[in-house]
């Protein structure tokens, strides 16, 4: 049973990696607004920030786990550290009694809706100043 599951996950990983590499993201069926509330209520922001940038980014990562909703759901479900089927990290496990499929779908929709917020460095005076000052500054004891 365990071997089969691992094979299944390996297959999922392969599919996910392929999809992510090809930027072929799956469709979004959930409600992003409802997902935003769930994202807050379940404390996803603790690690991923209120908008997907945080200790562990969700935005613009090319993560294979975000390739489509099924893979995302599998990622949430099979993280139990008691018998980890996926690499154990500090990401919590979410069985169906904690987040049902509809909730997962909504959260996935919200995550996919997160805006890319990385301005051009040249457009941000503060960042330009930091870089230019570093170029010009001479060390003084």
């Amino acid at each position: 049973m365990r071997t089969q599951l691992i094979r299944c996950i390996a297959l999922l990983l392969g599919v996910a990696a392929t999809a992510a590499n090809a930027q072929q993201l799956g469709p979004v069926d959930g409600d992003a607004i409802a997902g935003a509330q769930l994202y807050y209520d379940h404390g996803c922001y603790a690690c991923h920030g209120f908008s997907g940038y945080g200790r562990k980014d969700l935005n613009n990562t090319g993560s294979p786990w975000l390739a489509n909703e099924e893979i995302f759901r599998a990622f949430l479900r099979f993280r139990n550290d008691v018998a980890p089927l996926l690499p154990a990290t500090d990401m919590p496990n979410y069985p169906a009694n904690a987040l049902n499929d509809a909730m997962v779908s909504d959260i996935y929709a919200y995550v996919r809706s997160m805006p890319d917020n990385r301005p051009e460095t040249a457009d941000v005076p503060t960042l330009r100043t930091i870089l230019e000052a570093a170029e010009q500054r001479q060390y003084k004891p």
Binding site: H42, C44, A46, P92, N93, N97, A98
Partner: peptide, 23 residues
């Protein structure tokens, strides 16, 4: 006390109880 918030969430996740009460 954000570090503890994340710890409690993780523990609740490991126990399969969801993270909606980690706060």
């Amino acid at each position: 006390w954000h570090q503890e918030f994340m710890f409690i969430q993780y523990l609740a996740g490991v126990r399969g109880r969801g993270t909606d009460r980690g706060h």
